[in-house]
Computed example of a mutant assay.
Amino acid sequence: MRFKKTLCCLVLAVPLLTLFGCAENVLPEEVTKDGAHLEIILEENPTTGYSWTMDDYDTSLLKLEKDEYSASTTEGAVGSGGTHLYRFTGQKEGNITLIFRYYRNWEGKDTAVEVREYSITVADDGKIQSVDVKNKE
């Protein structure tokens, strides 16, 4: 009888431990990384006046390779917005926080309707090790 209870507990516990053990490596949907590159893709609609702006950061740790807005490909959808792509390459070992603000530039960054912070760890070989996100609305 005791063996059956132990077996039952193990059958239930192992999947839960696996699930929670892997959860810390899950990236938010707007972030992708392949080791050498980090991409952050944010939804944006400049026709409303709002756009994403990135705060200054230490460029010796991360190099910005691409900063590009792409309009939606939906036909006939005037003013439908699109996405803003930021692509980075790690340069040297360290920790860095990237801060993105969604606001109308004539109103100032303190009026941002959304702020996203990404804490990034770069390994000594320049590979992106981890990305943690903290969103403020």
Rank of each mutant, 00 (worst) to 15 (best):
V113F: 09
E30S: 07
L7N: 12
S130T: 11
I99F: 07
T32M: 14
F20R: 15
P15M: 07
T74G: 03
G94Q: 09
M54Q: 05
F88Q: 00
G94T: 00
T18D: 08
D67A: 01
Y103M: 03
L10G: 11
E75R: 14
S70N: 11
D125C: 14
T47P: 04
E114Y: 00
L61R: 08
I41D: 10
L85S: 05
D56C: 08
G79N: 11
S70P: 09
G35Q: 07
I40A: 02
I128M: 07
E29S: 15
K33P: 06
L19E: 00
T89Y: 01
W52M: 07
I41G: 01
G81C: 08
P15Y: 04
I120P: 07
G82I: 06
G49H: 06
E30H: 10
H37S: 13
R87S: 04
A13C: 13
S130Q: 03
N95R: 13
E107W: 06
G76F: 11
Y69T: 02
Y57I: 02
C8K: 13
V113C: 09
F100W: 05
E43I: 10
A71Y: 06
S70C: 09
N135Q: 14
E30C: 02
G82M: 05
E44T: 10
S72E: 12
E75I: 11
S119Y: 10
K134E: 15
V122S: 01
R104M: 15
R101T: 01
L27F: 03
K33E: 14
Y118I: 05
A36D: 14
T83N: 08
P15I: 07
Y50S: 01
D110M: 06
A77V: 10
I96Q: 08
E24L: 10
N25K: 11
T32G: 11
H37C: 11
E117Y: 07
F100V: 06
Y118H: 02
K109I: 12
S51Y: 02
W52G: 03
R87E: 12
T59K: 12
D58F: 05
T74P: 00
D110A: 07
S72V: 04
I120N: 04
T32W: 09
E137F: 11
Y118S: 00
H84D: 01
V133P: 08
H84E: 08
N45I: 04
G49C: 02
E65I: 09
G90S: 04
D132L: 12
F3N: 13
H37N: 14
E107H: 05
V122I: 14
Y103R: 00
R101G: 04
T53V: 15
V131F: 01
G21P: 01
G126S: 11
T83G: 01
D132Y: 13
C22S: 14
T89V: 11
T6F: 13
I99G: 09
C22A: 15
D56Y: 13
E107Q: 12
D110Y: 00
C9S: 12
K92D: 05
T73S: 13
Y102L: 02
T111W: 04
